[in-house]
């Protein structure tokens, strides 16, 4: 479904991604792990058109999407859920969710998607008329994911969904993402902490210093010497 081929990304003079290639197949939940500041977020942003690569190519559903603006990608069903959420703080939870269904593919399914999101996150139902800026960290994360789901996406790129959440909430969020994936949405997720999220992943990539250093299943990860040392500290 998504194929990234040897992309190189820079922030100014600073090189962030080195010949990164990865694949996400239809229906998979793929997780990219890596330490903070090693290019994971840049990778997702580059895929979603928020940052443009200097070289390399990205294709989605067989179509070349390198350099396309985010607006186009959203229409194609590639939706980004930001680590720093980017909610509309002075709008209500309901208004935020409604705007999630802004793109033309999502509009006709708005009511249906809203039911689905509220079933996944019943807590948002109670907060419907509250401004997004009044939500707790966990609720805001749910709203960000919910808003992304309103978009009728085929492919969700989720940036560190567990960031800043209490441990019990983290498990809940991963479980929900896994449910979303089982409902048919392909997911590429980026995470720092390999111990919790890996059990939900179909496949795992590890990123270090802007390079893919490992690719495999959870089982293969746990057997790998280098990975055990760097990522698990054992």
């Amino acid at each position: 479904m998504l194929s990234v081929d040897k992309i190189n990304s820079f922030y100014g003079e600073f090189r962030v991604l080195y010949d990164v290639s990865l694949q996400v197949n239809d229906g998979e939940l793929v997780v990219v792990f890596g330490p903070n500041g090693h290019g994971k977020s840049t990778l997702l942003k580059t895929i979603c058109g928020l940052h443009h690569p200097v070289s390399g190519s990205i294709s989605f559903d067989g179509k070349e999407i390198t350099g396309l603006p985010t607006l186009k990608l959203v229409e194609m069903g590639v939706v980004y859920i930001a680590e720093d959420r980017h909610l509309f703080p002075q709008m209500t939870v309901l208004e935020n969710l409604k705007l999630g269904a802004y793109n033309t593919n999502a509009r006709s399914k708005e009511a249906e998607s809203l039911d689905y999101v509220l079933k996944l996150f019943p807590r948002l139902t109670e907060r419907m008329d509250k401004q997004a800026q009044t939500l707790s960290g966990g609720e805001a994360r749910m709203l960000a994911i919910g808003r992304g789901l309103m978009s009728n996406a085929k492919f969700l790129a989720i940036d560190e969904p567990s960031l800043g959440l209490a441990p019990n909430l983290r498990a809940e969020v991963f479980k929900t993402i896994s449910d979303i994936n089982k409902a048919g949405i392909t997911v590429l997720m980026v995470e720092q902490d390999i111990t919790e999220a890996s059990e939900y992943a179909d496949r795992i990539y590890l990123v270090e210093d802007g390079r893919i250093v490992f690719e495999g299943t959870e089982e293969e990860v746990s057997k790998n010497e280098h990975v055990r040392e760097v990522f698990l500290g054992i």
Binding site: C48, L50, T70, L71, V74, E75, V79, Y80, I81, A82, R85, H86, L87, F88, P89, Q90, M91, E95, K98, L99, G100, Y102, N103, R107, R147, S151
Partner: peptide
């Protein structure tokens, strides 16, 4: 209205607007 909501959304978070597809 959708257009009205978008007009409020853009100044509140222009990146947020971009990622939900608001031009």
């Amino acid at each position: 209205t959708r257009l009205g909501l978008s007009m409020r959304a853009v100044p509140q978070d222009i990146v947020g607007a971009n990622i939900v597809g608001i031009p």
